[in-house]
Structures are given as C-alpha cells and as structure tokens.
Design a protein around this nucleic acid. Structure first.
Lengths: 91, 91
DNA sequence: AATGCTTACGGGTCACGTAATGATT
DNA sequence: AATCATTACGTGACCCGTAAGCATT
C-alpha cells in the first residue's frame, strides 16, 4: 500500500471525475484508473461508483476518504515533527 | 513513500538490530538497510545510529517511531472501518 | 459521435536476493 | 576472526504513458 494511492483516491473522490483527478495529480487517466482499482482490491471494497458522467463515492468510499485525508496529514506532520527535532539538535 | 517502509523502520527500531528486524519482516538485511536509508533520505533526517553491536534510535528516530506506529494503526483501522461499512451494506 | 472509464502493450524505475566489501570489537 | 551494516550486480515486479476498446448519452 503506497501513500500515493491515498492521494490519488482523494483527488478522484473530490473531483468526482477520473480525468480531472488525473490532471490534478499529474498522471494520465489510465494509470489512475489502475491505481484506484488496485486500492479497491487491497481494501477489498468498491470505493467509487463509476458512470459515464463521472464517479461518485460509495458509502464505504466516503468513510475511506475521511481516513485517507487524515492519514496523509499525519504523515506530513510526522515528517515535520521529525525534522524539527533533528533541526533542533543540529542547530 | 511506501507504508512498507514504516513497518520496516518500526521493526529495526524495536529490535535495535537490522538482522533480526529483517527476519521479522521477512526480507534480507541488505534490502532492509537500503529501505531505511531511502526513508531517511526522504525525511531528510538520520533516524538510527548504527554500530557494530546494533542500531539505536536518534532523538529524531524516537519521534518518528511514535508517529510511524500510529500511522500504521490508522491505516489498518481505515481498512477495517471501510470494510465494515461495505459489509453492513451487502449483508 | 462524444464523453468517461478500462484493458493491452512496451519501457523505465524500483525492490528484492545473493555475494562481496567495509568497519569495529 | 566474528559480527553488523553497506555497496555491487542481476532479476522480477511495479508504475507510467500511449493506444485501442467498451459503455452510456
């Protein structure tokens, strides 16, 4: 499970649209579609309801989105906090 | 940043020893060493103090360890919660 | 036909294992 | 010499982009 997948999923969830989400994260629709499928496979749950007019979150997807955003923030914060400690030591 | 790296790091941090940590996570010392180095490079901080008798956490490593464990738990919980919602729907 | 997502294929990067090397006791 | 960690090298898996395909409006 790569953190990249979390960011990809958040983008699709917020855009309701693979094409726009792909532009937002800087890749093409095709690899984005695969990445989301892989994520769904890993979690074992369908997170998005695809249609010809875009993609909406399933109830499970809504739950996962909340967690995913929180985890991304946690990771960023972990890095910052760790750097702060190291910086405080070396400075 | 792969979540695997978090698990690897926790193993080394808790074992104070690359060889034992490698056994614990099911890979060899060599790739484990590289993975930890890559993690340190990505965070931009030295997390472990290596020696011939093992490896101990730096102050920054101690901080990162706490966050890493928390994040791993969060990810596991996110999956469980998401599955629970999906399960509740289909059952 | 147009839009949106998915599958097929080829190429580059990444992660692993084995083996050799470096460093400290 | 023994122990612990780090490069060196080759192989298999993974991720991306391009292109073709399928479904719905």
């Amino acid at each position: 499970m790569h953190l990249r997948q979390f960011r990809y999923f958040v983008a699709v969830a917020e855009e309701h649209h693979f094409t726009r989400a792909a532009q937002r994260v800087g890749i093409e629709q095709s690899p984005l579609s695969r990445a989301i499928r892989a994520l769904e496979r890993e979690v074992g749950v369908v997170l998005l309801e695809r249609s010809t007019r875009g993609s909406l979150l399933t109830p499970a997807g809504i739950v996962f989105l909340k967690h995913a955003k929180s985890i991304i923030k946690s990771v960023d914060f972990a890095k910052e906090a760790t750097r702060a400690v190291a910086g405080a030591k070396t400075d």
